[in-house]
Computed example of a mutant assay.
Amino acid sequence: MPERTNILISGASSGLGAAMAREFAARGRNLALCARRIDHLEQLRTELQHAHPAITVALAQLDVNDHDRVFTAFGRLSQELGGLDRVIVNAGISRGQSIGTGGFTANRAIANTNFVAALAQCEAAMEIFRRQQAGHLVVISSVAALRGMPGLQAYSASKAAIATLAEAIRADTHATPIAVTTLYPGFIESDLGPTEEARPFRVSTDKGVRAMVKAIESESARAHVPAWPWAPIGFALRRLPLPVLAKLGRR
Rank of each mutant, 00 (worst) to 15 (best):
V116L: 12
I233V: 15
W230C: 10
E167K: 14
G135M: 08
A157W: 00
E197G: 09
A12D: 02
A246K: 05
L240C: 05
R238Y: 05
G193I: 11
I93N: 08
A118N: 08
Q132F: 11
R170Q: 14
R108V: 02
P229A: 04
A18E: 02
A223F: 04
L77V: 05
Q97W: 09
L119I: 10
D191C: 14
M20K: 11
H174Q: 13
I9N: 00
H136P: 04
I178N: 02
S190N: 09
E196F: 09
S204T: 14
S10R: 00
E219S: 15
I38E: 06
V64K: 00
A215H: 09
G234T: 12
Q133Y: 03
R130C: 15
Y155L: 06
A221E: 10
F187G: 02
T5I: 15
V89L: 14
E42D: 07
S94E: 03
A175H: 08
L8R: 01
A211M: 06
P229G: 11
L16G: 01
F71T: 15
L165Y: 07
A19L: 04
A25H: 04
F74V: 14
F104G: 04
I55V: 13
P150C: 07
A246I: 07
V89M: 03
A145D: 02
N112M: 13
